[in-house]
Write a protein that binds this DNA or RNA. Structure first.
Lengths: 262, 262
DNA sequence: AATATCTCCATTGTATACGCTTTATGCCTG
DNA sequence: CAGGCATAAAGCGTATACAATGGAGATATT
């Protein structure tokens, strides 16, 4: 068994925090980095959280990959206590699955979850479009265009990880423009899970959003046409969903007869 | 300062778990309750979580109430480690607020959060009605009627806490009938937060849902009229929201002058 | 030879101890 | 008499240690 992925494809972390400040010598006993007052205590946890979250969203950590606590604590240089907190948070966002005595692993979404997530996105993201079209400003449009362009660029350069994350970020940003923080956060979580779903059910070579869909969507929003934006978003999401090859691989007892006996 | 509520209005807990198994003598040193194999380890945490969550939803713990870790660990007989995990989970559901070095307290929703939450409920709960109307069965209807009846009963008996929880439970159950677990969970969270919002902005004597609204809603669902159910739900939620007296009380320095000097 | 069982190890669950930050009270000073 | 500072206490953040459980491998038995 365990044809799963290896244990730790986690590359240290490409910290996007402003302070690189070598990580591993924190464990050396003394504490050389008492910068401000406490400062990086909570920020460090948040950075680690984003690090793992990004790795999952970008498919550097694939569904089913196990996340052992002391391996993570080794990599990030904090003790298991902090790691557990982070894993628990990721579990609540359903990016990792916490099996009671078995530890954490990257969630492998089921087909039904996939359906639910895209149904939810249909309802919420589409429902948000009119309000977004109403509230969007020129600055927002410029920023969205920039994101879309960077996404296209990454896609063309073959940087799948980056493209996936930018695509999710685009949808999240869009939702945030509605001004409703609660719904925006919900959309953000749905986008993360969508990324996971793409990792499992996505056909390779065709990752999520079409190259120019986002640009077209921006155009509708720019002209304040909320209804067309809504319709387009609906079509957009349907396109993504229908591109999935949901085969619901039989988890339990994988039909050895059918597999081997033909 | 600290004209807040006292420290611990937590009455031990009216455990709804099947095993009462006295709680407080766990701290007595020995561990007399090693029942099955591990059994109550995780279940116990879940019970504590529900205990606190219920207390918040039922307004036995009011917004702003501080939740000190060792006080809770004393009450429930588990160490701070477990309490922290639970508090973190509650924080992620936005029932409690975790201030970095200050500990946990019951969240006091802002006016904007209230608006966002009800806007989200409008979008999701109403959007779910057609599907619910399509999938509802006779058994579901009977169960919903029972819940509504129990709610009315509690309301009439003056048991506010029970009525509030039953009302939220009704909406949650309804959402679950849609078959979409993701959206159902979102609705559940919105309902919890709504309860909190009612605690802060609700005019007393008029808590949330009207007595007979739920019964009427059931009727529409029973006849499979998703659109009317949707419209009714929309009106229902609007009624609740407009019953709030959102005054955005000045949080800081609770106006001691106005309070004591008249 | 295959399966069941036993044992050991890897890994998580929980508690406790320690340090740091914040807060409150008392004292000193202007 | 009022306001600021210092000291003490209390509570949170983190790490480490210990216990317990589940799994994998080895061995014995049928």
């Amino acid at each position: 068994m365990s044809s799963r992925c290896g244990v730790l494809p986690i590359m240290t972390e490409r910290n996007q925090a402003p302070s690189p400040s070598l990580v591993q010598d924190d464990k050396a006993g003394e504490r050389p980095k008492r910068r401000g007052k406490n400062g990086d205590g909570a920020e460090r946890h948040d950075a680690i959280y984003r690090s793992i979250s990004d790795a999952i969203i970008e498919h550097r950590l694939k569904p089913g990959a196990r996340l052992r606590e002391d391996a993570l604590s080794d990599v990030f240089g904090v003790s298991r206590t902090g790691i557990r907190k982070i894993l628990q948070r990721l579990a609540l966002e359903q990016l990792v699955t916490l099996t009671p005595r078995r530890g954490a692993s990257v969630t492998r979404p089921t087909a039904e979850e996939a359906k639910d997530v895209f149904e939810a996105r249909q309802m919420v993201e589409c429902g948000l479009m009119p309000e977004v079209a109403r509230r969007i400003t020129d600055i927002d449009i410029r920023e969205l265009r920039d994101m879309a362009s960077r996404e296209r660029q990454a896609l063309r350069a073959g940087e799948q990880s980056t493209a996936i994350k930018l695509s999710a970020a685009f949808h999240e940003r869009l939702a945030k423009l509605s001004g409703n923080a609660t719904l925006a956060e919900f959309v953000a979580r749905l986008c993360s899970r969508s990324s996971l779903i793409l990792a499992v059910y996505g056909s390779s070579g065709h990752l999520g959003c079409e190259s120019h869909d986002h640009d077209e969507l921006i155009r509708f929003l720019e002209e304040g046409n909320g209804e067309r934006a809504k319709a387009f978003m609906s079509r957009h999401l349907k396109t993504i969903e229908s591109s999935l090859s949901i085969v619901e691989e039989a988890d339990e007892v994988p039909d050895l007869h059918r597999i081997f006996m033909g």
